[in-house]
Amino acid sequence: MDIGIGLPGHAPWTDGRHLVEWARRAEARGFATVAVSDRLRWTTPEPLMTLAAAAGATDRVRLLTSVLLAPLRTNHVLFAKTVATLDHLAGPDRLRLGLAAGFREDDFTASGVDHADRGRAFAALLETLAEAAHDPGGLRPATPGGPPLLFGGTSRAALRRIATRGTGWLAGTATVDDLRAFTPGLRAAWTGAGRPGAPRVVVSAMYALGPHAASATARAIAPYYAFAGDEWVREGIAGTLTSPSRLAAAVTAFERAGCDELILTGNDPDPAQVDLLADALGR
């Protein structure tokens, strides 16, 4: 199982250069991927711009949007060119796009985008991405056919996207039980679509380490998930991996459950968290 790093864009970061330093350290310590999340109505940095900065600061580590709110990108041709540009800046076979329809209505309201129509908009964007990857008159991606697509969500529409257009499922912050509940249907949909092999399963989990792990987790998660209510906040804080022993147990459990890559997302913006994580995992 691969292990990646999720940048702490949801946490109270104040210096974007620290996020770039996270990417540098992630590559230096042998992590497979640098991932960045997406929220419009929050201080989360824009994912593609952030990954462009990370691409310029690194050479080998893979780059992942986890997940990008696809229907908010309403100029589909411009989005396709932005993706192709980032793919060239990173170099072939480094960028992967994790995409989802999005469920926060406030992000759509702020954009003037119809939340109820997001499925249709998502489908149209995917068509444009596919066409742009082979357009002789435009900027085609450096990666042949374009960057691989992973899709978030557990709906029938998400299953259909994965089985027909994707390379796998991006589970977001999920538990081992979530994984075991969803993957049988995922594999059945994949086989039913005539796809060879198996879909890639990528899961995210929150972490913070060191003497201030608990307070950093509370500062990051409580306001970020406040919209969902106190129970969600409590579960998010309780589920955060805050010790080497909990990290080791989680890595083992996810690997046994069939996870192909585990993205460990920081809750403390200090780049030293990358080294603490690498040390805890014996890297």
Rank of each mutant, 00 (worst) to 15 (best):
L241G: 05
A216I: 01
G153S: 10
E231M: 10
A248F: 08
D178R: 07
A248P: 09
A222L: 00
A181D: 07
L209T: 00
P211M: 15
G185P: 06
T242M: 01
R195V: 02
F182D: 01
G172R: 12
A220K: 00
W232F: 15
F182V: 07
T240N: 09
A250H: 05
S215N: 12
A174R: 11
P196V: 03
R160N: 10
P244W: 08
D177E: 12
E235A: 13
A188T: 11
S243C: 01
T167N: 02
L159C: 08
A174P: 03
M206K: 14
G229Y: 08
S215L: 15
A171K: 14
A249Q: 13
A214N: 05
T242I: 01
V233W: 00
I221Y: 05
L209W: 02
R161D: 03
V233K: 04
G210Y: 13
P244D: 06
R160Q: 12
F254S: 00
V202G: 03
T154R: 06
S243L: 01
F227E: 09
T217N: 10
A158W: 03
W232Y: 15
A248E: 14
Y207P: 05
D230Y: 05
R160F: 15
T183R: 07
I221H: 12
V201Y: 12
G210W: 14
W190M: 02
A189S: 02
G185Q: 09
L209A: 00
G166H: 02
R234Y: 03
E235Q: 14
A226S: 13
A228W: 03
G236Q: 12
R160T: 14
D177M: 13
P211T: 13
R165W: 08
T252L: 11
F182G: 01
G153A: 13
V203R: 12
